[in-house]
């Protein structure tokens, strides 16, 4: 795992300026009062064969909506998807061919695998739907279980979900996604529901699939340490926006955005006995309607400018970008990935 390694593999799935708004009714107000929440705003990313891209953020940061847009379960409000160079019509219905290429693994394996059927059913059904010969599905299901290290596979096929542990079920869930031979695996918090002692096993499995089978992996997590462990590139999201991204471990080793710094400082770190000292951090409301930087209400370095103007993304090193006014002087190149849409930018008139 070298630290800075630029794209060598093929781009399997490219997302450009993906955004998703949700309209909600304002409670207690006139019935027609509506509020628009920008759940994901202007996110661009490449999922590259043989590489892991991690998306880190707290609950409500929009990371799961992003994964669902990439899986085309949620339709983007704007932005484009490109699968292996072929643009996807934005409003077209998700078809089997897309599902065969891009598969999603969900957070809670106890909820995502049908409890009334044997594991065999969960694995064979996607195979049949995707047109595998009925005579061969048993053999294919067995081979896919072996790929996720569930040995002996025959024994697992006839088990029911309640007979397996969380870690084993998550492996089944990954096996089910692998059944249709996808090129892109989207893993939405795959370890957060699992016991600590089996988490690394799942992470190593994802890493192995990425290295050995050249899968492009999106790893969504709120645990920045696990992102550092696994990812070739890391994105930090806050309130729907990408606030910092870097290739390699630069983002964790030299965080530049105050939110990334807060995330890292919050991770329990037994090697540093002083790390429990309370930090002045206010839990902010993630109101997407704020003008200026969305993190400003919680930011220890916020200035008047941060509250008034939304910061663009500054490139502060090779493959390292930060959406923070503090980085304005540090920039080594022209801003990239700035907000190109009219929305979300400075609204001073």
């Amino acid at each position: 795992m070298s630290d800075v390694e630029l794209d060598t593999g093929a781009v399997q799935l490219r997302a450009s300026h993906l955004s998703r708004d949700f309209t909600t009714r304002v409670p207690g107000r006139f019935l027609r009062a509506k509020r628009v929440t920008h759940a994901v705003e202007d996110v661009s990313l490449d999922l590259v064969a043989g590489r892991v891209l991690a998306v880190v953020g707290e609950s409500g940061s929009g990371k799961s909506v992003l994964a669902r847009m990439l899986a085309r379960i949620v339709t983007p409000t704007s932005g484009e998807l490109e699968l292996r160079g072929t643009p996807i019509a934005p409003k077209a219905k998700r078809d089997l061919a897309y599902a065969a290429m891009v598969q999603l693994v969900l957070q809670d394996p106890f909820a995502s695998i049908n409890p009334v059927h044997q594991i065999r059913h969960s694995l064979e059904r996607p195979l049949l739907i995707h047109g595998a010969e009925r005579a061969r599905v048993g053999e294919l299901a067995r081979s896919v279980l072996e790929r996720v290290s569930l040995d002996p596979s025959d024994r697992f096929l006839d088990r029911y979900p309640h007979e397996l542990s969380g870690g084993q079920l998550q492996r089944v869930s990954i096996a089910r996604a692998l059944c249709v031979k996808p090129q892109v695996l989207l893993a939405d918090e795959p370890i957060s529901m699992l016991d600590v002692s089996v988490r690394l096993g799942i992470l190593n499995l994802l890493k192995g699939l990425c290295d050995d089978e050249n899968l492009a992996v999106l790893y969504i997590t709120h645990d920045i340490a696990s992102a550092r462990y696994l990812a070739d590139e890391t994105i930090v999201m806050y309130a729907g926006q990408v606030v910092e991204r870097s290739v390699g471990t630069a983002l964790v080793d030299e965080p530049t955005h105050p939110y990334t710094q807060l995330l890292i400082a919050s991770v329990p770190d037994p090697s540093d006995p002083t790390s429990i000292a309370p930090r002045a951090a206010t839990a902010g409301v993630m109101d997407s309607s704020v003008v200026g930087c969305r993190f400003a209400p919680r930011c220890p370095h916020a200035s008047a400018r941060c509250l008034a103007e939304s910061p663009p993304v500054f490139e502060i090193g090779p493959g390292h970008h930060s959406r923070c006014w503090l980085q304005e002087g540090n920039r080594v190149a022209t801003p990239v990935l700035t907000t190109r849409r009219g929305k979300g930018g400075p609204t001073t008139t």
């Binding site: 002692s197 096993g201 920045i224 550092r228 696994l230 090697s271």
Partner: peptide
């Protein structure tokens, strides 16, 4: 079983 925040990235095994 906890990936560290510092130091060289190396493979950890957890508990089989």
């Amino acid at each position: 079983s906890f990936p560290p925040l510092h130091g060289e990235r190396r493979e950890l095994t957890g508990i089989p």
